[in-house]
Write a protein that binds this DNA or RNA. Structure first.
Lengths: 112, 112
DNA sequence: CCGCAATACCTAGTAACGTTAGGTATGACA
DNA sequence: TGTCATACCTAACGTTACTAGGTATTGCGG
């Protein structure tokens, strides 16, 4: 179902995936897939650059963590700016989807 | 509020604007602006290429019309395929916005 | 032990597409 | 007469998600 649809929304999606708490990149991918009921199944090449971009922008804080297994992971967490940004993005999303909604309003009926 | 957000959604928006009935390009722009309560104020350079693309794809039928004023206008209308495409896009939009919605929903707890 | 899948990270190049920034022309109004 | 709104168009640009590759570790089955 994807395509170009999530252009401009992906930052919000990633921020939303990290809202519950810190997670590493690979887990973010699975969290997005899980929480969207499979609706968003994003490749790694999509997510990692976003994480870097958001960290660069100060919306995420990343740190290297060594898991029990010994594997090194990069764990990201929302900064305070990130939380604010998420709230903003969410408000804009509401405006956006409301605008789409009103475009559809009254045009929904099919003539038999 | 725009940005890159409507990438992948613009076709749907234009199709939706033409759902009530035929209109020429300039009118489509104003219809979108009006129906979205100013939320979408799209430049001509955005809309015209979309109209051409959709006509090329067979989703719109365009014809030259001379208005009472004598001015020539290109009037577009949804084709059968365009109507079907709009219905599809709308269903996909619902999936998309539902997926975003569930990303926001329950931003903490897992069931069990 | 070996091979393979899953995990986990990364980046360069590509392609799509909305926007910017120009251009042309007409009708209405001061 | 000049300026604005109407009405159309297109080339070039920039952003950005995706493709397609790469590296390395853990854990599994054979």
């Amino acid at each position: 179902m994807e395509g170009e649809m999530l252009k401009g929304h992906l930052d919000m999606i990633v921020l939303a995936a990290l809202a519950p708490g810190p997670a590493h990149g690979y887990a973010v991918i699975e969290e997005i897939k899980r929480r969207s009921a499979g609706g968003f199944d994003l490749p790694e090449g999509t997510i990692y650059p976003v994480l870097h971009r958001l960290e660069q922008a100060g919306l995420l804080a990343g740190r290297w963590v060594t898991a029990d297994s010994g594997r090194r992971r990069r764990v990201y967490e929302l900064t305070r700016r990130g939380e604010r940004a998420l709230a903003e993005r969410r408000a804009v999303w509401k405006q956006f989807s409301d605008a789409i909604g009103s475009l559809f309003k009254g045009t929904g009926r099919n003539p038999a």
